[in-house]
Computed example of a mutant assay.
Amino acid sequence: MKVFITGVTGYVGFAVAQQFLSHGYQVSGLVRTQEKAEQLIKLGISPVIGDLADLILLAECTHAADGVIHTAISHNSDMEKLDVLAVDAMLEGLEGTGKTFVYTSGTLIYNDTHHDVVDEDSPVKPLPFLQWKAIQEQKVLTAAERNICTVVIRPALVYGRGGGLVGATIQRTKLTQFAKYVGDGLNAWSTIDVDDLANLYACAYSFASTGSLFNAASRELITTKDLMIAIGKIAGVAEIESCSYEEAVHVLGPAAWGASINQRISGLRAEQQLQWSPSANSIVKEMEKGSYQAMAKIKR
């Protein structure tokens, strides 16, 4: 079985690729450079050099594969345009085949969940800059009518392997010595370990019904206050305290919005339908005793 993965060298995409390799799949992946291609070859992954703008290439790769997993996203002003065109090209390459296409979305399209725990049946309320992501989800799900086994996965806060938003926040905190939470810090986020997430992709690829939507979240919640306390300890910041939203915007920019909201997400549908169960260290344990401890050894 051949699976094609976009974003194969990314934080999530690489973990997904390793998961599929461990299950005996032939994995190919989209990469930008020859250097990254050579690294993938050493790991048993067949590289395809290109990017999301190479629409003909994407269509060819999806047509040649037995299934496709889309984890790539461009972090520039063309993010929306590139994703829309790339997904259109890949769906066209899969149309009429019955093959699987897994699309990566995110739980931020729920907006602030306040004190409610939301699931896949809950309405999404994306802010304007995320409206396109909700539209992409619906396009992918309705493509089931084109004889494509479509699946959408919405990861919550992804952690593990010393990376992701947690890793980036540790590095920024070390640099700025700014380790503060917004308001009382009692707003909470659901979490998912990157390897548990990769396992979910594999389970969804194998067991999901066409037109399925899954939140990727463990049963663990962490408040932003507790998260910043743990990050502050690793980063060597002595005082972790509250700040106003305006102060957070000054330091964090648009990311302050995410730090101020709740993301209380249920992942029970995936547990019930996909024979999947998250089993990794909690986010706190991973910071106290796991992969993020390596950052504490970096000279300040």
Rank of each mutant, 00 (worst) to 15 (best):
H23N: 11
Y25I: 09
V27F: 07
S28G: 13
G29M: 09
L30C: 03
V31C: 05
R32T: 07
R32N: 11
T33D: 07
Q34W: 03
G44Y: 10
G44I: 12
I45S: 08
I45N: 06
V48W: 07
G50A: 10
I56P: 01
L57R: 00
E60P: 13
C61G: 00
C61T: 04
T62F: 06
H63G: 02
A64E: 11
A64W: 08
A65M: 15
D66S: 11
G67V: 02
I69H: 01
I69C: 00
I69A: 00
H70D: 12
T71F: 04
T71W: 00
T71Q: 00
A72T: 01
I73Q: 08
S77K: 15
D78P: 05
M79P: 00
E80G: 07
K81E: 09
K81Y: 14
L82W: 03
D83E: 14
V84D: 07
V84K: 14
A86N: 06
V87R: 05
V87F: 02
A89D: 10
L91Q: 00
E92D: 11
E95M: 14
G96W: 12
T100H: 01
F101N: 02
V102F: 01
Y103T: 07
T104D: 00
G106T: 15
T107S: 08
Y110D: 08
Y110C: 08
D112R: 09
H114E: 13
V117D: 05
D119M: 08
E120M: 12
S122I: 05
P123L: 04
K125S: 13
P126T: 12
L127M: 14
L127S: 11
W132K: 12
W132D: 07
W132H: 15
Q136C: 14
E137I: 14
Q138G: 08
Q138H: 14
Q138T: 13
K139C: 03
